[in-house]
């Protein structure tokens, strides 16, 4: 800010807070959770450890839900069957982020995509990172419909989390 500009009001600096010149109360909310994953998500996470992506199928409408759910949102009835889908698919859309959660600049841009998995119903799939994809290919729209495959953590490093898949990369 230009120091020569005289603004109305009382100027503050962060130092004034540190020195206690400005009254304020500081408090940090504490809230911790251990979410029950439930039947569908538990199996999904367990199967990630095995390097597999499991889904649930509704026999009425034929939808294959991934991530799996125990109910069909469209027929409103329980889903019927566990099925595996492939760890390959097609990019529906992608984004290139140059900033992190705190708006700080990222060293390497992060590419994230919505991926429709092979074997799942249209519109079902996974939100995940893309690796070995040039951000330029997102900008020039080559990324649309790009065929990709999951790159998994080593089996001994997997912990039953979505991050057991490191990223998806283009299939040559």
């Amino acid at each position: 800010m230009d120091k020569n500009v005289k603004l109305p009001g009382t100027p503050y600096s962060s130092d004034d807070f540190k020195k206690g010149k400005i009254p304020y109360v500081e408090d940090v909310p504490k809230a911790r959770y251990t979410w029950s994953a439930g039947i569908a998500m538990s199996r999904f996470l367990e199967e990630l450890k095995n390097g597999r992506i499991v889904a649930r199928k509704c026999h009425e409408c034929g939808r294959v839900y991934v991530p799996p759910r125990m109910f069909c949102s469209y027929c409103f009835r329980p889903t019927d069957e566990w099925v595996y889908v492939k760890d390959t698919g097609r990019v529906n859309t992608a984004v290139v982020s140059y900033i992190g959660a705190d708006r700080g600049k990222l060293g390497e841009p992060l590419v994230v995509a919505v991926i429709e998995l092979d074997g799942a119903s249209e519109g079902m799939g996974i939100l995940h990172k893309l690796g070995n994809v040039d951000p330029e290919d997102v900008k020039n729209r080559k990324v649309f419909n790009m065929r990709v495959r999951a790159v998994w953590k080593k089996p001994e490093e997997r912990e039953g989390a979505i991050t057991d898949i490191l990223y998806f990369e283009p299939i040559e």
């Binding site: 439930g38 109910f71 027929c75």
Partner: peptide
């Protein structure tokens, strides 16, 4: 053993059956 979504589904299934409606 259940997620909150699975609990909600059980309650909803029973309520819609009790009402005799198809929510969709």
């Amino acid at each position: 053993e259940y997620s909150y979504k699975e609990l909600m589904f059980e309650a909803a299934l029973k309520a819609y059956e009790d009402a005799g409606i198809n929510p969709r």
